[in-house]
Design a protein around this nucleic acid. Structure first.
Length: 447
RNA sequence: GCGGGUGUAGUACAACGGUUAGUAUGCAAGUUUUCCAAACUUGAGAUGGGAGUUCGAUUCUCCCCACCCGCACCA
């Protein structure tokens, strides 16, 4: 169990502008959150790092950005419509949940019909006759296309981003003249009507996914699967700097694997509420393309010209939620320390991920010559790094603590020596130690 | 969705069926300050929403919303 408390993370997020409750002034909305000025910087950096590692640095993985609303048939083919519409009943006595159609011994999914058939039926678990009325738990959010709300115009907000990757398999393969193996990557929003959103931004109804589907001949599924497992682990530890102590592998058993997956391994992170799923690697086999071929009637086979073979590729999926990654990075970086007898909160973020790269202060704000010189240094750093904070409020210790709490790796202070020799102090967030640097060397030093 | 709990400034807490809802910290302005939340002055800032009981409700009751803890769910 993490020694970081969720309430501390939530409080910090609110206090410092990382995450706010959505529509807070109206009482909020369960399962929805807004990212604030600092939060979106961190989110953007996480996404950029992932895109860099998955797409930009490789020559056989291509990006797409699919629409959130797709033809509803896509979700029939993917299995989501069926999986999302099973009628269920709960037992009021023992709390067990059962498939209403199974209990009633019918294939019907008509709720009124099921209600009649279930009259007098007892709970198979406890034997009491206390079942609720049958109802469906549809996890897909519905909307309407066009101004008229009728059954013909129903559409769904995508419950996962993968759909438009599979439907664009042929388009990408042909336009990019790609040969197997190759991958398609996407970062985007997905929506799920979670029954109970929980644990801050961990389980939400609007989420952002970063995922990659790797299309392969079935013969290499084992090694490719292992490659993507390794990638997930090394990305988290090397690229994001997350401690290995906070990560562990979890293999899905038969009972918890998704409907499409032949094998599934998750990286779990030590969240404040315990080790929970962060990043999934799944072998989706030819489940998706086969189903889309069947339902759409379009040929989605890959043609290997050299071997003169045609077949439906297997797919290895690597999928991670942006919000969970954000929460993992924050939790991993969050530290409370004693410094000179006082407590300080410090986010030991990897410098590349910090919302602000460096902060600049004049030692004293009532000395115009210091302020003026500090402004010059600020402008130099600002044009180099962009995310630079100016702070001349209060005393210097206060400013250091403020930057500690938002993870700014360096604080540059202009003092009276600066006016003599053009050196400044650069204070390190983690060690709190400072050293003097020539202003002309600052950009390189911080980089 | 079920059961239990909690909602007071940005944050963390206090108080009360009745005067102007208090403290700390944070925030802002100013004085001061030659490197780790110093000091002083000033200022802004809250009873989640809606009904009801009452002369009067932040306080009691009900409904809604949100959050927390279990359970369930978790493609």
């Amino acid at each position: 169990m993490s020694n970081v408390k969720m309430e501390d993370i939530v409080s910090l997020c609110k206090r410092r502008g990382f995450v706010f409750q959505a529509s807070e002034i109206y009482g909020g909305l369960a399962g929805f959150y807004d990212y604030g000025p600092l939060g979106i910087e961190l989110v953007n950096k996480i996404k950029a790092e992932w895109w860099q590692a998955v797409v930009t640095e490789r020559d056989n993985i291509f990006g797409v950005d699919g629409a959130i609303v797709q033809n509803p048939k896509l979700w029939e083919a993917s299995g989501h419509v069926a999986g999302f519409t099973d009628p269920l009943v709960d037992c009021k006595n023992c709390g067990a949940r059962h498939r209403a159609d199974h209990l009633a011994g019918t294939d019907s999914t008509d709720l009124n019909e099921l209600k009649e058939l279930l009259e007098g039926i007892k709970c198979p678990t406890c034997g009491k006759q206390e079942l609720t009325e049958p109802r469906t738990y549809n996890m897909m959010m519905k909307t309407w296309i066009g101004p008229v709300e009728d059954n013909e115009s129903i559409a769904y907000l995508r419950p996962e981003t993968a759909g438009s990757i599979f439907t664009n398999f042929k388009n990408v393969q042909e336009t990019m003249r790609a040969k197997l193996p190759f991958g398609i990557a996407q970062i985007g929003k997905a929506f799920r009507n979670e029954i109970s959103p929980r644990d801050f931004i961990f389980r939400v109804r609007e989420l952002e996914q970063m995922e990659m589907q790797y299309f392969i001949p079935p013969s290499i599924q084992g090694s490719v699967y292992e490659d993507w497992r390794s990638f997930a682990w090394s990305f988290l530890t090397d690229r994001l700097g997350i401690s290995k102590d906070n990560l562990e592998w979890h293999e899905h058993g038969d009972d918890e694997r998704a409907h499409y997956a032949a094998a599934a391994h998750d990286v779990y992170f030590n969240f404040p509420q315990g080790f929970k799923e962060l990043w999934g690697t799944h072998n989706r086999t030819d489940y998706d393309l086969s189903n889309h071929q069947r339902v759409s009637g379009k040929d989605l086979q890959y043609i290997d010209q050299e071997k003169n073979e045609r077949f439906i590729p297997y797919v290895i999926e690597s999928s991670v939620g942006v919000g969970r990654m954000f929460l993992a990075v924050l939790t991993d970086a969050y530290h409370e320390e004693e410094i000179n007898g006082d407590k300080r909160v410090v986010l030991k973020l990897k410098p590349e991920l910090a919302p602000y790269r460096v902060a600049v202060s004049p030692l004293l704000k009532n000395k115009p010559e210091l302020v003026e010189k500090a402004r010059e240094v600020y402008d130099i750093l600002k044009s180099e790094f962009g995310n630079v904070m100016w702070d001349d409020n209060g005393n210097i210790g206060k400013r250091y603590r403020r930057q500690d709490e938002i993870g700014t790796p360096y604080c540059v202070v202009i003092d009276f020596d600066t006016l003599e020799n053009n050196t400044v102090t650069v204070r390190d967030r983690d060690t709190t130690e400072q050293q003097r640097q020539q202003i002309s060397d600052l950009n390189e030093f911080i980089r």
